[in-house]
Amino acid sequence: MTRKVPKEIKQFVTAILVLNSRKEYILAVGLWPYWRHKKLFRNGLKARKIENKQDLEEGLDWCFEKGGRSDFDTAYSRISLMPMDSRQFILKTMSQEDDNFHKCNGIHHEMHRIPLGGILAVDMTEYLFIALAGQRLGYLTEEEAAERFRSGLKKLQENYRDWNEFIVGYNYGMQHHSANFSNEYARINKRYLRTILLAKRSPMNKINWQMSLDF
């Protein structure tokens, strides 16, 4: 029997994908009209160089198992396992023009504030986007997509306590990937992400982060 994705789960996935999309568009005109367009998914997969089912599954597996977070995890382990003095010494010896310096410096300043889930949020939003696109464009059956959604959401729930942590993890991940920890970047993201979280229409206000995934 084909297992369909319940509406609440679709909404949960969509809520997460808010962060992975044209955020201003979603804030302006709402989410559902946006997701109706297959062109969005087609372009999304094209940008990720996914052209067939095999590419799609490889992309999904990569996001799930490794993803961009491996770079962060390596840097985080390296920095956090060092004693404080050594961290400061290392940062002093690095070139400030190097992206790696900004990444390590960011970790040094945030290492005790970053949620325990780290920057998994970025990879999982990517994972869920690819899975949804795969379903909409016919690469994945409803059942396969349901399984992907469940595994992705479960991983997120295990690693973040609530929407706040998820957003903070996502924001930190984006900063890490772009090696941009500037005040301006933080200012823009703060205003924008806060709006997303607090907006009345935001699905994040309607969906329980720890909702049951039994379907």
Binding site: R113, N164, V168, A186, N189, K190, L193, R194, L197, L198
Partner: peptide, 14 residues
């Protein structure tokens, strides 16, 4: 100290 700290802003807003 950090007026753009996202998490503090989120907490404040809530």
């Amino acid at each position: 100290e950090e007026k753009n700290n996202l998490e503090a802003n989120l907490l404040y807003a809530q």
